[in-house]
Design a protein around this nucleic acid. Structure first.
Lengths: 118, 118
DNA sequence: TGAACATATGAACAACACTTCACATGAAAG
DNA sequence: CTTTCATGTGAAGTGTTGTTCATATGTTCA
């Protein structure tokens, strides 16, 4: 399986490197969580919702207006954002106002914006 | 369409807010790009590849070994990462070594890690 | 140039996700 | 308590995406 060239270097697989990298990898569970979180950001509707909430809290109906989408579609996506603790909400009469839950959101978006800008 | 309560406040839609938020929204094109970039991060295989490359440059075959996946699957995903300028590569003999293309990657991943850790 | 190795790529299938539609839940006003 | 307004949610359909398989491209060495 493992071969060597005339210098004694491993060709395939480079087992030492492979093993060392493996040691330093986070648990799969964490990597799944990480990918799942990015998935949440990886949808245009949700990104646009987050961008709206970056400016001000807003109720479901108004978000739907701004984004020119149905109330139902927005509500579905807000549930996803809520599950991932990216937004919080408060009830005021018949309306439910959503806002960002913490400051990581803007930092994360900003970094990706920088990458795109290059 | 627009109604008012006894104080003259708009109920639905809150047009002033809607219009103001709309002015400050980035172009749709940019938001699509942003979501697309997040989509790239939103896959476990690609996240794991990036994590590997965070430590050291590595050739396709070895990445496949570390992640216990087929060479083809890894190669496909590397093309996606390449298209989005998240990785660069250099050829050395028969092997192609991949590495991260800039430092945004680690910052972005770190921020999301922080969010998860909460 | 032919054989062996390393990577890239097209097609197809399966799995997943987003929107729509219909309807349920919840709140407030008469 | 019934109606109306605002939001939530389940099911279904469609489109997207990741892996696999087979094969092509490209490199090295004999």
């Amino acid at each position: 399986m493992v071969k060597s060239n005339e210098n004694g270097d491993f060709i395939h697989a480079h087992n030492e490197i492979v093993e060392k990298v493996n040691e330093n990898m986070p648990d799969d569970e964490i990597l799944y969580e990480l990918a799942d979180l990015f998935k949440v950001f990886g949808d245009t509707t949700r990104i646009r919702i987050l961008y709206v909430l970056l400016e001000t809290e807003m109720c479901v109906y108004d978000i739907a207006q701004v984004l020119n989408m149905t109330q139902s579609a927005i509500s579905h996506q807000l549930q996803v954002l809520k599950q991932n603790k990216l937004v919080k909400f408060r009830r005021e009469g018949k309306s439910v106002f959503y806002s960002l839950s913490d400051s990581h959101v803007s930092t994360i978006i900003d970094q990706c914006m920088e990458h795109i800008a290059e």
